[in-house]
Design a protein around this nucleic acid. Sequence first.
DNA 1: CCAGGAATGCGAACTGGTTGCAACAGATAC
DNA 2: GTATCTGTTGCAACCAGTTCGCATTCCTGG
Lengths: 140, 140
Amino acid sequence: MEQVLDLLRSHGSRVTTSRRLLLQCLFQDGVHRTAEELAAEVQTSAPDVHLSTIYRNLDELERLGVVVHAHLGHGPATYHLATETHGHLVCESCGAMLEAPQDFFDALARAAARDYGFTIDPRHFAVLGHCAACAPATAK
Amino acid sequence: MEQVLDLLRSHGSRVTTSRRLLLQCLFQDGVHRTAEELAAEVQTSAPDVHLSTIYRNLDELERLGVVVHAHLGHGPATYHLATETHGHLVCESCGAMLEAPQDFFDALARAAARDYGFTIDPRHFAVLGHCAACAPATAK
DNA sequence: CCAGGAATGCGAACTGGTTGCAACAGATAC
DNA sequence: GTATCTGTTGCAACCAGTTCGCATTCCTGG
C-alpha cells in the first residue's frame, strides 16, 4: 500500500484522500468489485467522493499496473489488485464465479503460440460455461 | 435460410421483411458484424427498418439458437450464425481478430472439467492477447 | 378477407462509462 | 507558514450501446 503511494508520487501524481481510501478498499480483501461498489465503500468515509473520481483513479491505477479490471459477464467491469493474477470462470446459469490460477491456461497458451504465434492474456474476459451444480440441469 | 424461416413460423413468430433481410445479411458471408452494421446493411434495401428492430430480431434469433453474439473487445457486440462455432483471439495492440476452431479449446475444457467440474463455452468472450506481429513489440 | 396478436417505428429511457470546466487542494519553494 | 504551481475533484452534461413503452402496422390462421 505504501509502495503504491510512493509509486504515485514518483509519477508526479498526488496522494489524495480519495486515492488513499480507494486503495484501502482494494487492499482490504481480494473480492472483485465494480466501480460503483468501490464508490459506495469509499463514500462511507468520504461521502462526496464522486463516482467519476473513482473511475479516474481506477484508470490511473490501471495505467500504473496496480489494478486490473475484468469483465465477468454482461454487467459492469470488476476491479482488483494486479498482484492477484488469475483468470475467471463464470457460470451462465447461476452466475457463480471461480478464480483459476494462471497456469490453468498454460495448455491454451501453448496452443495459441504454436498455432497462431499468439500470446494470450486470458485474464481480461471471463470464460463462460456451466458450473458443476448447473451443468447437469442444462444437459450439455 | 428457409429452415430458419420455418423455425420462426413453427414458434408462432412471423416472417417479416426485416427478418428476411436480416437473415440474408447473416447468411451472406461469415463476417462478424455489429447490430449497427447489420442495420446499415438491411437499410440499403429497406431504409426505415429501425435499429431497435434489428436488436429485437437478433435477440429472437439468438433465443432460437440461430445466431450468437460475441464480445471481441470493449466496443459493441458482434453477431454471427451459430453454425460457425469458433472462439476468438483478439490482439490488444492492433485489434486483429483470429478465429479459433472449437477443438482449440479442448485442453482448456478438459482442465476445467477436471479441476472444477466446469463445462466451458469459450465462444462468448474473446481471449485477449498479442498477435504474432505485435507480441515482439510489447516484449512480453 | 377478416380478426387477433405479433412485429415495427419511434422516441425516450437506461446502464456503464467519459469529459469539460471551474473550484479546490497536495507538494514544493520561499 | 504561506504563496504558488499544477494535479485532482465535484459536478453536470455527454456518449455509446442497448432496451422499453406504446400506438400503429401487417402477417397469418381461420
